[in-house]
Design a protein around this nucleic acid. Structure first.
Lengths: 156, 156
DNA sequence: ATAGGGCTTCCCATCATGGGAAGGTCAAGG
DNA sequence: CCTTGACCTTCCCATGATGGGAAGCCCTAT
């Protein structure tokens, strides 16, 4: 099996297969005499494992741990569960941060009439910072601000 | 005002101020005869604007638009609102994707007893893909899988 | 004068991914 | 046998926002 076929069979692009090899996530594939990489069904299985773990948001580093556990027949399921729970916690945190941003933006967008006039509470907020609008709305941007010092989530 | 003071006053690191200048988000600052960058309170205001927009998750590209609108006195608030709504939509999408991953992981983690034994449904899922566990649970990973072809969100 | 802190530029790393160029290989068909 | 096109190889570059660090200049206070 050449790299292209392995890519199709696993759902991991040829580029990424080479990358995973280069960073040591997978062992170096065998080669034909002319230098083509060769893959077996077992290799494809590993690649699919990686692909699925990536789909669940695991970073390559964690996948390395998962692969090691997978190949360790004396593993303890608790170790796998721990990694999964850490991943869940990380996702939770990021979701909460993004949710805070979104809440603030929704608040601001609601306050903006969105017509032809130049007055805009969104720009005003960006300019002057969170204002105490009234007693019970407690300021539009508070959630995002409380989420800590500039832990910005990139779109990537 | 030197760059360090502007950084403190705006909450944007000196490194990032130089970066924003290099990518054209802000105009090149004035210089002393010895080459030090100089900033005014107006510059600091712009930097704070940028900082707040970043806190709301806007990418630099969008901030460029926002700054242009901010400085355009004949702007229409609808334009600003549109950008904000786009940002909200983007956040919503990413949150939904992460939520799907998290749901799947929770499902798997719940099914994993997490003890000293090697049997682990999490690894089994990564190995074999989503299984129809029973009629009404409709398979743990379906949400993450349906979220489309490998639009992975990075931890960064 | 010297020390220390701030400033400059430049390079590198992150993290996972894709794009593309230059060149070698292989299989099928003229 | 040779060409063509599809595949493979390696290498470099870009992404996006950010930090780290080195080498070297500048300014101020002692």
């Amino acid at each position: 099996m050449n790299i292209g076929e392995a890519a199709k069979a696993s759902g991991v692009s040829a580029k990424m297969i080479r990358y995973y090899e280069s960073v040591g996530l997978i062992p170096a594939a065998g080669r034909t005499t002319s230098g083509y990489r060769l893959y077996t069904m077992t290799d494809v299985q590993v690649l699919r494992f990686i692909r699925r773990a990536r789909d669940l948001g695991f970073p390559v580093e964690k996948i390395e741990e998962l692969l090691a556990l997978w190949q360790d027949r004396s593993r303890q399921s608790a170790d796998v569960k721990r990694i999964a729970l850490e991943q869940i916690a990380g996702l939770e945190t990021r979701i909460r941060e993004m949710q805070a941003m979104m809440d603030t933006l929704r608040h601001l967008a609601n306050a903006c009439c969105g017509d032809h006039r130049p007055d805009c509470p969104i720009l005003a907020d960006l300019l002057e910072g969170p204002q105490q609008v009234d007693a019970h709305s407690e300021g539009g941007r508070s959630a995002a601000i409380r989420s800590g010092p500039a832990t910005i989530l990139q779109t990537h």
